[in-house]
Computed example of a mutant assay.
Amino acid sequence: MEQRVDFLTVSTADLDVVRTFYRDGLGWQPLLDVPGEIVFFQVGHGLVLGLFDAEAFARDLGDDATGVGSGPRASAARPAGFTLSHNVDSAEEVDEVVDRMRAAGGEVRKSPQAAAFGGYHAHVAGPDGVLWEVAHNPGWSVEADGTVRLGVVE
Rank of each mutant, 00 (worst) to 15 (best):
Q29T: 15
R19T: 00
R23L: 01
D33R: 09
G27L: 08
T20D: 07
F21G: 01
L31P: 11
G25F: 06
F21S: 00
F41E: 07
D16C: 00
L32Q: 11
D16W: 00
P30S: 07
V18L: 01
F21E: 01
T20M: 02
D16Q: 02
F40T: 12
G25A: 10
G25R: 08
V17M: 02
L32G: 08
V48Y: 05
R23V: 09
F40E: 11
V43P: 12
F41C: 10
G46S: 14
W28S: 09
D33I: 07
V17G: 00
Q29A: 15
V34Q: 04
L26H: 11
F21R: 01
G27Q: 09
G27H: 08
Y22H: 04
V48I: 15
P30A: 08
V18I: 06
V39S: 06
V43M: 14
G44H: 13
R23A: 07
V17L: 01
D16K: 03
F41Y: 15
R19F: 04
F41D: 07
G36C: 08
P30Q: 05
V34K: 04
I38E: 02
G25W: 08
V17T: 03
V39N: 04
F40M: 15
F41P: 07
Y22V: 04
L49E: 10
R23Q: 08
R19K: 06
G44P: 15
L49T: 12
L15H: 03
D24T: 12
P30E: 06
P30N: 03
F21P: 01
G27V: 10
L47P: 08
W28H: 11
H45N: 15
V39F: 05
G36P: 04
F41Q: 06
L32F: 11
P30L: 06
L26T: 08
Q42P: 14
V39R: 05
V17I: 03
G46T: 15
D14R: 05
G46V: 15
L32T: 10
F40C: 13
V34H: 03
V39T: 11
L15Q: 01
L49C: 11
L15G: 02
